[in-house]
């Protein structure tokens, strides 16, 4: 699903990413960890083509992201869902409208919007709160709206940069739980996090960055019972 070959990203003299090679399979869930400034956000931005690599190749599905023209960016982004640390919800729109907003811009029919948005909100467990404003929702609930928006178009890939950075540990766990359920439905999920505790308890594939380089890439551990317990 995601392939990076010798990807380097340079900001002036700073090498934010230094010769990265990665291969993330379809339907896989991978965690991206590393200290602050390690290059996690930079890597994410390269994936959704907010930035271009200084050198190297990035392939997502069958799209060559590194050589993608500006005009094709929407085409790429419709094939991925993006979740943000700061949720990026419109404060004056209900949960439902926040999820529906993009679909409207994409010209979907009204009944299809109803169907898809309800489906996404149901999946994140927020159907009853559909008509609440973001300010009437807790942080965790707001992030679930963000996730519903990311998956509403049924993308094969979801990327989330520190989706739990603003949430308490219990709520964070809940969000990770949700993301891993989404991965189980066949969606590739890439999540960056600072939360060491979650990384350990999940036993998912964990890619560690340091100073722009991949310093470890540990496959999913079989020792997964913590997480299994969590999910009941």
């Amino acid at each position: 699903m995601i392939k990076l070959k010798n990807v380097t990203k340079q900001y002036g003299k700073i090498k934010a990413l230094d010769d990265i090679n990665l291969d993330i399979k379809s339907g896989e869930m991978a965690l991206l960890v590393g200290s602050s400034g390690a290059g996690k956000s930079t890597l994410m931005k390269l994936l959704y083509r907010e930035e271009r690599p200084s050198s190297g190749n990035i392939i997502i599905g069958n799209i060559d992201v590194s050589s993608l023209s500006d005009a094709k960016i929407p085409y790429l982004r419709r094939r991925m869902g993006i979740v943000f640390q700061d949720f990026k919800l419109l404060p004056n729109k209900s949960a439902f409208e926040n999820v529906a907003y993009a679909l409207r811009g994409l010209g979907a029919e009204e009944y299809e919007i109803q169907k898809r948005v309800s489906g996404a909100l149901k999946l994140v467990g927020l159907l009853e709160r559909a008509f609440n404003l973001p300010s009437e929702l807790s942080g965790g609930e707001q992030q679930r709206v963000g996730i519903a928006r990311a998956i509403v178009q049924g993308p094969p890939l979801v990327i989330a940069d520190e989706p739990t950075g603003n949430l308490d540990p219990a709520t964070s766990l809940e969000i990770f739980n949700l993301l891993s359920r989404i991965a189980e439905r066949g969606t590739t999920v890439l999540v960056s996090t600072h939360n060491q505790h979650i990384v350990e308890s999940f036993g998912k594939r964990t890619i560690t960055l340091d100073k722009g380089q991949v310093v470890s890439d540990i496959g999913p551990t079989t020792n997964n019972h913590n997480f299994a317990q969590l999910r009941r």
Binding site: I73, P74, R77, I82, L90, A102, G105
Partner: peptide
């Protein structure tokens, strides 16, 4: 600007924005 940013990130076409 927030609306515009979100629309761009979810892949809405330029001219709708």
């Amino acid at each position: 600007s927030l609306e515009i940013e979100i629309l761009r990130l979810v892949g809405v076409d330029d001219w709708f924005i």
